[in-house]
Design a protein around this nucleic acid. Structure first.
Lengths: 198, 198
DNA sequence: TACAAGTGTTAGTGCTTGCTCACATTGTAG
DNA sequence: CTACAATGTGAGCAAGCACTAACACTTGTA
């Protein structure tokens, strides 16, 4: 009787947070009911009081990811900084997020999402789409204000921008996190901003 | 006694090919000794005659990936086309490769590589590095010949270029392969080439 | 106070996993 | 021809997996 009783909403949030951390450390494969329960100091069976199964936990994580992305979008759209400054801030907050919650990109790339549950895959595709839209908006604003080249396609440029970040994260992960992500991103940003500046 | 005896070199090649196909269909998680042996029409135990274990099979796949990349590099360096044409050809051959052997990108992104065996991770990081170097070379040639802007950083631009492709593949996978990869890539290429053209 | 609903645990279940063992068959060198 | 190494098989093992049943405690409420 070590575990104090808590509202299921609270427990669900705790479980999701622990699951993201665990995925960050050990991957989606490493997210087992035994490890998750152990990490939380509760029994495996108790997980099933709050979630119908592992799939439901993954769904909840994807919803959490969506919430993070949406929050970021609304935060930056309210901002009154220059478009290129906004873009840099999105970049930096993205990198910060990835570093402290590496479980998120890991789930995004995982086979469990790409090959497993269909709903999971579609939900995530939608989230990424809306993330691209956020970048597009900033780019369009920059084009309108004359800080970005008028001949860029905002959609393709947004996709290229995000791809640049993703690939940096991939290389960083493959390197065993040996190089400085911040420095790498700073270099990439310097080059990218030169490409799209008027 | 359905299985005819073959040289272990031949069997290894067969196993690696079947494993890549299987990963393409079912992911690295779907690559189980049972499925792989079943696909090849042989017993599980026979796999262990030719490979010491699953890790060894994954290593052989990574070596195969390295061979593919190296071949591509040497093929394009021998080519006498214009730099921008070369870059487009690399892009197209990359996409073609991904489409017919989707097991390769799946392994590159897999947790088994990123979190599992260290040697695997380092080998793959090296391969990607040399792939980046190939792109860099083409970009540098283009800058020298005056077809690409002289103010680009070839290294960062190469990384951005590859990231753009990777991200397109990710979105394609997340979409359930519903959109046309060729059209998407064509759009991205048109925008990218505009960004780096003089 | 009674009691139903909600939250917790222990101790399992059946299934899949990578892998091994003992044994059969085949190819080939002396 | 014979002996031996290489290549093949079926049977099965220990560990890990997601998940469940049966039961215990707590809390809100009629």
């Amino acid at each position: 009787m070590l575990m104090e009783k808590k509202d299921t909403k609270t427990r669900q949030a705790e479980i999701v947070a622990a699951a993201i951390t665990l995925i960050g450390e050990a991957g989606v494969r490493g997210l087992t009911t035994a490890k998750l329960a152990g990490r939380l100091g509760m029994s495996e069976a108790n997980l099933y009081r709050h979630f119908s199964g592992k799939q439901a936990i993954l769904e909840a994580i994807v919803d959490e990811i969506g919430r993070v992305i949406m929050d970021r979008g609304s935060a930056f759209s309210r901002l009154s900084a220059a478009p290129d400054e906004k873009l840099r801030m999105i970049l930096e907050s993205h990198v910060r997020e990835v570093k402290e919650k590496s479980g998120i990109p890991r789930l995004v790339f995982s086979e469990d999402v790409h090959l497993g549950n269909r709903m999971l895959r579609e939900k995530l595709a939608l989230r990424i789409k809306s993330y691209i839209a956020i970048i597009e908006e900033v780019l369009a604003e920059g084009v309108g204000k004359g800080v970005f080249r008028p001949d860029i396609c905002v959609e393709d440029t947004a996709k290229t921008f995000l791809g640049m970040i993703q690939f940096a994260v991939l290389r960083w992960s493959l390197s065993g996190f040996t190089f400085s992500m911040e420095e790498e991103i700073a270099r990439l940003w310097a080059n990218f901003t030169r490409l799209i500046a008027v």
